[in-house]
Simulated scan of single mutants.
Amino acid sequence: MPRQRPYPSDLSDARWELMEPVLSAWRAERRGKGLDIGRPPEHDLRWIMDAVLYIDRTGIPWRYLPHDFAPWETVYGYFAAWQKDGVFEHLNGVLRRLVREAEGRDGEPSACVVDAQSIKTSANVPAAGQGIDAGKKIAGRKRHIGVDTLGLLLAVLVTAASVSDNAGGIQVLSQIAQDHPRVTKAWADTGYRTTAIDHGARLGIDVEVIRRDPGEKGFKVIPRRWVVERTFGRLMHHRRLARDYEALPTRSEAMIRLAMIDLMSRRLTREATLNWRGT
């Protein structure tokens, strides 16, 4: 049943044009492999993406999805399939390249910034997948990300909060080196010590630690590091990321990529990204 009134999270025609080729290609590939045989009639992909973005933006449980969307089981099934098949990673790559080129940059980055964020979890997250960040005094999970100099996502890894920034950073740097071979420079905070720096050197990435002046008090914008901090702030406009609600770390990573897809598509079409008060 089509909705009479759109939600603020719904895709505009311009944003859908950016995503439609990737999603249609995914559907055609699955159909070619015979994976749709015996299934109910196909749902409109734009309608499904609207529902997934609604979940990410509002933070509601899947079972609370409004009835004017497809059944929540169907929407979650598409979300899980897109995560498993790498659709969110592909969309991130396509949109990131478009944003960089629109900003007059080369489509592929040559430098990155890495950081981590500890976040509390909900009751449905298995205890075995959680930990305690002793420094931040947070029990839950940790999001390790790498972004380019525009703050666009290059790599993401979700672990228990007890995993050190250093250990997570090593995996993020490896992922960046594999997917973005032009990257030769990385900036990080003091949580990334000798092993991460040495690992970066082996990958051909010069990891520079940006230190805060110990004599400074209060808030201070730190060169280079502010880029990744801004990205974390923008991600938090999506309430699904205010905590970690996903049972599987891979689904948490998918929610982060989905939020970046939302942000980048709005940036390309010059549509405002409303904050929580605006929605």
Rank of each mutant, 00 (worst) to 15 (best):
V87F: 00
Q4M: 14
I37P: 00
L152F: 00
I60S: 03
G278C: 04
T269L: 13
P109E: 04
V183R: 01
A80E: 07
A188Q: 05
D85Y: 07
G38D: 02
Q83A: 12
T273M: 13
M236W: 07
T190S: 10
M260F: 13
R141A: 05
R212Y: 05
R234K: 03
L153T: 13
F88S: 02
D165E: 15
N124G: 10
A155P: 00
R266H: 14
A254G: 03
T74H: 06
R243K: 13
R211G: 03
A160K: 05
D85M: 07
W16S: 03
E20Y: 04
R15M: 14
R270T: 06
L98G: 04
D133E: 09
V22A: 11
A186Q: 03
A70P: 06
G151Y: 06
K136T: 13
I170D: 01
Q83C: 10
Y54W: 08
I48R: 00
G86F: 12
P71I: 04
Q171P: 00
A196I: 01
H199D: 08
T121G: 09
T273W: 06
I55G: 00
L248P: 02
M236L: 14
G86C: 12
A111T: 06
A160P: 04
L152R: 07
V75P: 03
I256Y: 01
R141T: 08
V125C: 06
G169P: 05
Y76S: 03
A188E: 01
A139S: 08
L98H: 02
W82A: 03
A81H: 05
G59N: 15
Q117T: 06
R57E: 09
I132N: 11
H238P: 03
G278F: 12
Q171H: 11
R243P: 01
G168D: 11
A254F: 07
R105M: 14
S122R: 12
L153F: 01
G151N: 10
R15I: 08
K217A: 07
D133T: 09
I170M: 10
Q178I: 10
D148Q: 04
A186N: 05
A70K: 02
G204K: 12
A111R: 13
E253P: 02
L35W: 10
A155H: 12
D262T: 05
R240H: 10
I60H: 04
I170S: 02
Q117F: 08
K137P: 05
A188I: 03
I145W: 00
A167S: 06
V22T: 09
G77H: 10
R224Y: 15
S110K: 01
V114K: 00
R266I: 11
F219E: 15
Y7V: 02
H67T: 08
V87G: 00
I176D: 02
D165S: 09
L65T: 04
E101K: 12
W16G: 04
W62P: 09
E208V: 11
E108P: 00
V113A: 07
I170L: 12
D179S: 14
